[in-house]
C-alpha cells in the first residue's frame, strides 16, 4: 500500500521540472567547473584540480 502511494506521488513528475533541473544543474556546473573568469577560476582552483576539470 505504502509502495503504491509513493509510486503515484513520484510519477507526478513531468518533463518540465526535469528540464528545469537539468538547466539548473548545468548552470551551477558551468560556474564551478567551466567558466574561465579569473575571479571564479582562482576561487574554484583547488576544487577543479581535485575534480579533474580541465581548467587551465
Amino acid at each position: 500500500m505504502n509502495a503504491t502511494t509513493k509510486t503515484i506521488s513520484r510519477a507526478d513528475v513531468t518533463l518540465l521540472p526535469i528540464a528545469f533541473a537539468v538547466l539548473g544543474g548545468l548552470t551551477l556546473l558551468f560556474a564551478s567547473g567551466y567558466a574561465q573568469a579569473s575571479v571564479l577560476h582562482d576561487a574554484a582552483h583547488d576544487q577543479r584540480h581535485a575534480m579533474a576539470f580541465p581548467c587551465h
Binding site: R10, T14, I18, G25, L28, L29, A50
Partner: peptide, 27 residues
C-alpha cells in the same frame, strides 16, 4: 573555504542532473 563552497556547488549541480536522469527513467 572556497574549496568547500565550490565542492557544494559542484555536487548540487551534479545532484540536479542525477535526479533529472532518475526522474526521467521513472517517467
Amino acid at each position: 573555504l572556497m574549496t568547500v563552497g565550490f565542492n557544494i556547488v559542484t555536487y548540487v549541480g551534479f545532484g540536479f542532473l542525477m535526479l533529472a536522469a532518475m526522474a526521467f527513467a521513472e517517467l
